[in-house]
Nucleic acid binder design. Structure first.
Lengths: 135, 135, 135, 135
DNA sequence: GTGGTCTAGACCACG
DNA sequence: GTGGTCTAGACCACC
């Protein structure tokens, strides 16, 4: 998938590099990007989005640190195999952080006044969206 | 609840003031802190956690800005009534952001290799924890 | 507008950060600062006024919370579009507070002995000043 | 006027002492309280409102500092004559501050999106309310 | 180089 | 005694 459309939103409070990383993560999770697929070059993404090159490099580095992609000097970045990435760890600390993030967002949804049932269906809907590609 | 135990974790990537705010938010969501309850003084929390007074003051200000607590100058900070806080808005932009946060954390859980069913039960468990007080 | 002159007055009872926020608000209202314009860096304003960096950061944060400016981490603070900021809410409570502030200041003008006609012309004059830029 | 009904609102961001002072100022401006009228004792107001005695004393002191009332040791506070209070000053600094307050609130009304005409009529309406008693 | 967070400690405003 | 403001200076996150 050469094009790989990514969007960034200036009104989104997340830092740009994280918006980019989050979008690529979602593409991998959904199966739109599969093991062995090449990611577009940092320079191209930066040019497309009109942002600094370092910003995209930071996003790729974050994905690499998570084991989701492999970056080889001079070559295109590739989506890593799932076994590779999950074998690599899901270390306790990561899992603890994910749990914390989950709790934080659920707390806010509760405080926003949403009933449990509605929260559950939002979650279910998002999961369907996320995994609607192949798997 | 006189003691109101709050913890901060130096390894947690969130800034301390946000960890504190997140914990208090959870206490309010769970009903451990109810409308009209007094929060412990800024100085006491700061001393307990061994952090600076201003750090806690920032957390309280964030909660005040969200309408969850009311802070009056020489008086204790109090948990605001839910009607007050929800009347305050639940603006579109907020709910859009909450949805984005939810998607982001769910994506990471999927990539960590958890099956949908297990994610759903984690969510359900967290919600049970969060709302186990009164509501 | 590269310079953007801001003044603070030590005899003014308002805290410095609020004086700064109030001045920038007036510059935005008057059109001297328009959507997309960059605000001067926090450090520069602080140096110019001879106050601490955090004081100015607090002012910028207040403006950001009101939706008047957008602040992105490593980038300059920018004046937000008016649609963005007004879409954000104009909640009831805000307008009630504005009304109260208006009543308070008008009361004081009356007690200072100014006749209604003179108060009206002062108001009119201020409004002309405030909106003399574009709109 | 012995009763002199005053209200304080816990959701009002103004400090309580100022809410009280503002209300009494409005009563004087409207003519509901006239030169020579006695204000209720500090203790009674404090008891009626269920607030600390010092809070009301602070409000009375502020009004005394402005020359609006005279407080004699052991006797009731009395509304001062207008000539007394205006003769006393309307010092430049006060007038400058009033002008600043006026500009601040008008700025916020403009930024809230109200057209000039609507602001002018709000001002006019408030002035009518304020001076609807005798004068 | 930009804004964000945190600290240590002083002083003020409010009740 | 409560929370608010300000300072001086350090270090981090982001672009």
């Amino acid at each position: 998938m050469a094009s790989m459309i990514i969007h960034v939103d200036a009104n989104d409070p997340r830092p740009i590099y994280r918006q980019v990383a989050d979008e690529i993560r979602a593409l991998i999770a959904s199966g739109a990007l599969r093991t062995g697929d090449a990611l577009p070059p940092v320079r191209q993404v930066a040019a497309d989005l009109g942002v600094n090159l370092n910003t995209i490099a930071t996003a790729y580095r974050e994905l690499q640190d998570e084991g989701l992609i492999t970056v080889r000097h001079g070559a295109r970045a590739l989506v890593a195999s799932r076994t590779t990435s999950t074998a690599r760890g899901t270390k306790e600390s990561e899992s603890r952080e994910l749990r914390r993030s989950l709790r934080t967002v659920l707390t806010k949804l509760v405080l926003a006044g949403l009933p449990r049932s509605q929260i559950m269906s939002q979650v279910s809907e998002e999961l369907r969206e996320l995994t609607k590609g192949s798997r």
